[in-house]
Design a protein around this nucleic acid. Structure first.
Lengths: 184, 184
DNA sequence: GTCTATACGCCGATAGAC
DNA sequence: GTCTATCGGCGTATAGAC
């Protein structure tokens, strides 16, 4: 196995800290200490903390879709693919100890103060919705695909924030039932 | 009209800043500058920034329920009360320029680092859900009140976070239709 | 109970040696 | 390309005068 590159280690450490304790609560000094590098090395790879934030978001988006598509591709029935997508979100919450959605978190924290980040998150959520729409349309006899897509998307978002606040995953079980009832 | 007390002015200014630019991004110095007081006065009224955070959350919860109950009490039909509650959330988003839910925001920012805050937010969301449950049960011929309550709650939470990211209120129009279709 | 002055530490970022 | 040393500023909080 190839040795992990310095840049990758910085992103990995920073991602973990940004996610677990928040972007503003994570200092450069903590990142370099946990990554076991000097501050000069960090600024050799990233021009600013903001630059590191963007790398973090790009990496998390890639990981999110890689994981989602892997789960979906293992199943043939569209209706079951949608169920698997919800289980995927549920599992992400469980493995992170209900730390929540990376993208909702960062928007909650920085608001509209950084347009690049706002736009990235907006685009990310749109891509998530389009993935749902694709699966809904693959499902035969769905009456109003767009309305069903919207409802599924909103229920998932609601379940994610609710499970983050309550530190439990029962919301995902609720929406599984609702959504399976929605689909023919 | 009675002159606004210093303590109230501090809470008002701090609340606005915590909401609009985030808790961690708001410094004590900014609060005292905008409230036009000295730092000694702030620490005379609040023992720490954390103490001020708690006062902020308590005040926002009171304001939320005052506003919700006012809107609901003006209507007699339970089904229309639920519709009015959704419009209330929509209006809150519009008047804040889609700044989002105070409680989801603070949890996203501080995570589980402050148990008092986590528990307060969890209890607040439970109260919101119980308000919905009361209205659902008042509506005649609802088949499974608890399941419908859960679904309405999750759809509203999903609409709030989605409208915050997209800076638009169309999600509320979507859930109005869905929820009106759910209720007999 | 409001004020000013200040303590002490961490913040992000840069300079320049090697 | 990684390192150490250091900058200027802002963070929360306290002391003590009035």
């Amino acid at each position: 196995m190839k040795k992990e590159k310095v840049r990758d280690r910085i992103i990995r450490v920073a991602s973990d800290l940004f996610y677990k304790q928040g972007f503003n609560s994570t200092g450069i000094n903590q990142i370099i200490a946990e990554a076991d590098i000097a501050i000069g090395s960090l600024y050799n790879h990233f021009s600013s903390k903001n630059d590191l934030l963007q790398a973090y978001l790009i990496q998390e988006e890639a990981a999110w879709f890689d994981g989602a598509e892997k789960v979906i591709s293992e199943i043939s029935e569209p209706k079951e693919k949608i169920s698997a997508l919800i289980d995927y979100r549920k599992k992400l919450q469980e493995t992170s100890e209900f730390a929540g959605c990376h993208f909702i978190k960062i928007i909650s924290e920085i608001g509209e103060s950084n347009a690049a980040v706002s736009n990235f998150v907006k685009a990310h959520k749109m891509k998530q919705k389009e993935l749902i729409r694709t699966l809904v349309k693959q499902n035969k006899n769905t009456v109003d695909s767009d309305a069903v897509t919207e409802q599924i998307f909103l229920l998932i978002e609601g379940a994610v924030v609710t499970s983050t606040i309550n530190k439990e995953d029962i919301s995902f079980d609720h929406i599984q039932k609702i959504i399976q009832g929605l689909l023919p």
